[in-house]
């Protein structure tokens, strides 16, 4: 399966064309981290067998503390609820990760679902990134420590939110992507807004990979 046949939910904005290397000219920079693999993982945090099996299959200890994020290499595991996680991995690892999870969780009450078509991520950076979030979400960004992930509002939509690479990573649903991007750009414009080059936007991802 070639990435050339794929389109991210923000494809129509042709962000690559507008993108430049972030500098001090603007208060806010954003770029998409497109076409990652997303896996919904369900199971009971209180069942050690499940937690151990999932952790070993993912190569990351499954975060069981509420609102925390575990990361190892290019794999990110976000706690959603006591029985739900969102696994984000490079597309190239998607099939193998799903297979590993299904193998490890054989016979254990759980659910592993490929949801890769359903999400995308945006990395928000710059001096005013947190101001933009204050316009867009009701969550108190001061409480968003590194390693924490929360699901909250974004305008009249919703997002997962965590700190990444001296900025913030937003993970949200495909069908709302157009709205979220427009709403974010609108909030960012008064501070000066630039589309960040994909290389820079995904620097963190590459570094950790």
């Amino acid at each position: 399966m070639s990435k050339s046949l794929m389109q991210s939910p923000l494809h129509h904005f042709d962000l690559a064309k507008q993108a430049v290397k972030p500098d001090g000219r603007h208060g806010v920079w954003a770029g998409e981290l497109p076409l990652a693999g997303y896996i919904a993982l369900r199971g009971d945090s209180a069942t050690p067998a499940f937690v151990e099996a999932a952790s070993s299959a993912l190569g990351v200890p499954l975060p069981v503390t509420p609102c925390t994020l575990a990361q190892s290499g290019a794999v990110k595991v976000a706690w959603i609820s006591p029985d739900e996680w969102l696994v984000v991995c490079p597309r190239e690892k998607l099939g193998a990760t799903i297979a590993a999870l299904e193998r490890a969780l054989e016979g254990i009450r759980s659910q592993v679902v490929d949801n890769s078509g359903g999400y995308t991520q945006v990395l928000l950076t710059g001096a005013n990134a947190s101001d933009v979030l204050a316009h867009c979400t009701v969550y108190d960004i001061a409480h968003l420590d590194p390693g924490k992930v929360v699901g909250t509002t974004f305008g009249k939509s919703a997002t997962l939110l965590h700190r990444q690479d001296r900025g913030f990573c937003l993970i949200f649903r495909r069908s709302f992507a157009d709205y979220l991007w427009r709403f974010m750009v609108r909030a960012a414009t008064p501070y000066g807004f630039g589309v960040a080059l994909r290389e820079d936007a995904s620097a963190a991802e590459r570094e950790t990979a």
């Binding site: 389109q7 939910p9 129509h12 305008g155 009249k156 069908s175 709205y179």
Partner: peptide, 18 residues
């Protein structure tokens, strides 16, 4: 506020919209 015009409320699009 920003809840007007094309950000009045979410407009959801399918992958085939274009």
């Amino acid at each position: 506020g920003a809840h007007e015009g094309d950000t009045f409320e979410p407009k959801r699009y399918t992958a085939m919209h274009a």
